[in-house]
Design a protein around this nucleic acid. Structure first.
Length: 308
DNA sequence: GCGCAGGTTTCCC
DNA sequence: GGGAAACCTGCG
């Protein structure tokens, strides 16, 4: 694990002596949309129906607005704190080309987020830029999510399936999802139907909607999981990789977006290769650690504006 | 005003 | 399978 101990106080806590942890790296490596930088090394994060303020203090990290229970049930896992990233870095640094990216993004960690939130968020990410993605995800939260008040400011959690199940196509259009609106609408329907189907399921009944059950998908092997996710409209290879890496603990996923493609060309000379070929190359090269390698490469490429 | 952005779908070969 | 165009909208 990458911390020494945790001290709990009244509605806040201090994680002592963290290693391989830097908030800026974690939040800016492309895996999360619901964060806000309120000061240097100080962020607001909304996830799993909760809001926390996270602040770096030397080698310690303070989490405000969290109980002991929430830390143990949510944030410990969310920040992947029980994983030893030194082991991962040592292994991946054997690749001298990747080493540079790892040193640059030394505090990157792969967050464990909510599958439904990732599913909708990354459908929205297709052919879109980050400010627009954040705007649409926030509008969805504002319209259907639970209200959270922190320091006299009002925020909204990302809605769960029961909160958003009755959203109309028109309402989704209004969030700025544009041509992706119908995908989101369709996806919400399928997730909701899988939920009711699961509840109604008789012993040996098969149901056409069960394949949209996110718990079921999460428990599949990596390749099956990747395929299953692409049954949702608006989810292709890249978006499926993001969902399974950021919310289903599939660390062999290797999402190839424009930045990772640039990084692979830059470092490995993967000239004019198709996205799928780069994906296969990355997965073969980095194996179970491909997802971590992807995060270091993405952060390096984007921060250094490679090839632009 | 025009091109393009953290891809997917659809159509075509 | 693999490649190219269309897709909505906001922003530089």
């Amino acid at each position: 694990m990458d911390y020494k101990s945790v001290e709990f106080y009244d509605n806040y806590l201090i994680i002592k002596k963290l290693s391989n942890f830097k908030l800026k790296h974690i939040f800016e490596c492309g895996q999360i949309f619901r964060f806000e930088e309120i000061a240097e090394n100080n962020f607001i994060v909304i996830a799993f129906g909760r809001l926390i303020e996270v602040k770096e203090d030397g080698n310690d990290v303070i989490i405000y607005n969290s109980t002991k229970e929430d830390f143990q049930n949510i944030w410990l896992k969310y920040f992947d704190l029980d994983r030893d990233y030194s082991v991962i870095k040592d292994e991946l640094s054997k690749d001298v080309l990747l080493k540079q990216s790892i040193e640059f993004g030394y505090g990157v960690r792969v967050l464990n987020q909510d599958p439904f939130e990732m599913l909708l968020s990354f459908i929205i990410s297709a052919r879109n830029n980050i400010p627009s993605i954040k705007k649409t995800v926030n509008k969805i939260s504002n319209k259907w999510g639970k209200e959270i008040i922190y320091k006299n400011k009002t925020y909204y959690a990302f809605p769960n399936i029961d909160e958003i199940k009755d959203a109309t196509l028109e309402e989704i259009q209004e969030t700025g999802a544009s041509f992706r609106s119908k995908y989101i609408f369709d996806t919400i329907k399928n997730v909701y139907n899988s939920k009711t189907a699961k509840e109604d399921l008789k012993a040996n009944d098969t149901n056409e909607y069960i394949k949209y059950d996110l718990d079921y998908i999460k428990n599949l092997d990596d390749d099956d999981c990747h395929n299953a996710l692409q049954e949702f409209k608006g989810v292709g290879s890249k978006v499926a990789d993001c969902i399974m890496l950021f919310s289903m603990e599939k660390t062999s996923a290797f999402p190839v977006d424009v930045w990772v493609k640039r990084a692979m060309i830059h470092f490995y000379g993967a000239e004019d290769a198709s996205l799928n070929k780069i994906r296969i190359f990355g997965r073969n090269k980095f194996g179970k650690l491909a997802g971590f390698a992807q995060q270091y490469l993405f952060y390096y490429a984007r921060e250094n504006k490679i090839n632009v």
